[in-house]
Write a protein that binds this DNA or RNA. Structure first.
Lengths: 190, 190
DNA sequence: CATGCGAGAGAACGAACGTTCTCAGTGCAG
DNA sequence: CTGCACTGAGAACGTTCGTTCTCTCGCATG
C-alpha cells in the first residue's frame, strides 16, 4: 500500500477511536486492527502513541474549524453568520457519534501536565476565538473581542450540555442567548 | 486511627489527587501515600478504585454546590444572586489549584462508556441547572428554565475558558453576558 | 505471662499495554 | 537461480498498576 494512503487510513482510524473512547482507552492494537496496518508500519509514521495523538488533535483542529467556516459561509448577512455557528453546533450534536469537544475531553484526560496536547487545546480555542471575533466585528459589535469570548463560552457550554445530555435543546438555547447578546452589543448607529 | 477519621483522610487525599491529575493518572499507591493509610485499609472502605472515584465525585458534587449556594446567599437582591454565581466562578478560578470542572474532566477521561461516573456528571449538571432555574425564577425571568440552561452554558464555558487559559477574564465576561441575558429576560412589569 | 486478633508495611501477582523483536514470505537485482 | 531487502503478522519484553497475600508487630484479654 502507498505510504500516503496508509498514513491517511492510520489517521482516520486513530481519529475515530481516540474521539470515541479517549486517548488512554484506545490501545495500539485497536488502532492497528482498525487501520489494517502492522504495528511496525504505524511506528514508522509516528514513533510513539503520544505523537500519533498529537497528530490526531492537529488534524481535528484543522478539519473542525474548516467545517465550521464552511457552514458560516453559507450565510451572507453578518448577523446570520454569527448565528450560523450555533446552527453548526446543532447539526454536529445530532450526529450519531457526537461525543463532545475532542479538545475539552483530552484536556480533562491529561490533567494538569503541561503537555503538547494541552497546548494544542489552548491553540484550538484561541483560533476559534479569533474567528468568532472576526464574525462579531463584521456584525457590528461594539466590543467584538469580548463578544467573541462570550460566544466561545456559549459554544463550549453548549457542547458540554449536549455531550452530558443535560439539555437536549442546548444548541437552540445557546443560539437564543447569542442572538440576545448580539442585539445588545450592536454598535449605536451601526 | 478512628474509622471516620481515616475515611475522611482517604477521601480528602483522593479528592485532591483525582482533581489535580485525573482519575487514571493517580495510582492507588499515590493515594496510599497521601492518605497515610495502608492499602488494606483503603480497600476495606472502597473495594475498588472505581468506587473510590465515584465517592470522590459524589462528595465533590455536594461540596461544590454547597459552596456556590453559600456564596449566592451572601446576596439578597434576586438579580444580584444570579450574578453572584459568576463572582463565585471568578473566585474559584483564582485559586491556585484550579483545574477546571471535575465532572467535565472525568467525562472526557471516561469517554463514551455509560459508567456510573458519566451518570454522576449528568446528575451534577442537572442539579446545578435546577438551582439556577430557581434563581432565574426569583429574578423574574420570563422563561426561567431556558435562562437557567443558558446560564449553565455560560458557566461551563467560562470554566473551560479559564481552565485552558484561553481567556483570563472568563468570569467577568460571562458575568457581563449573564447580566445582558437577565435584563432581556425580565418579565414585563416584574 | 501466654494467646489470639487485627493492623500496618510492603512484597507479590496478574493483567493490560506501549514498544520492540523474530521469522517466514515475497518480489526484485544480478 | 540466488541472494537480499523489505513487508506483514504476531510473539515477546518490560513496565505500570490495580488488587491480593504474607509476615510481623502490638495489644487486649483470660
Amino acid at each position: 500500500m502507498n505510504d500516503d494512503e496508509a498514513r491517511e487510513r492510520l489517521l482516520a482510524a486513530a481519529g475515530q477511536l481516540f474521539y470515541a473512547r479517549g486517548i488512554h482507552a484506545v490501545g495500539m492494537d485497536d488502532i492497528r486492527e482498525a487501520a489494517g496496518l502492522p504495528l511496525k508500519r504505524i511506528y514508522q509514521f509516528f514513533p510513539s502513541k503520544d505523537q500519533l495523538a498529537e497528530a490526531y488533535l492537529a488534524r481535528r483542529d484543522e478539519n473542525w474549524l474548516a467545517a465550521l467556516a464552511r457552514r458560516v459561509d453559507r450565510c451572507r448577512d453578518p448577523r446570520q453568520r454569527v448565528l450560523a455557528v450555533f446552527a453548526f453546533l446543532g447539526e454536529w450534536f445530532a450526529t450519531p457519534d457526537f461525543r463532545g469537544c475532542a479538545f475539552i475531553n483530552v484536556f480533562g484526560e491529561l490533567g494538569s501536565s503541561p503537555t503538547a496536547a494541552a497546548q494544542i487545546t489552548r491553540r484550538h480555542k484561541q483560533r476559534l476565538r479569533r474567528y468568532l471575533a472576526g464574525l462579531a466585528n463584521d456584525a457590528g459589535a461594539a466590543r467584538p473581542t469580548m463578544l467573541a469570548a462570550q460566544l466561545l463560552m456559549l459554544m463550549d457550554g453548549a457542547v458540554v450540555s449536549a455531550a452530558t445530555g443535560v439539555n437536549v435543546r442546548a444548541a437552540a438555547d445557546a443560539r437564543a442567548a447569542a442572538s440576545t447578546l448580539l442585539t445588545a452589543a450592536a454598535r449605536a448607529g451601526a
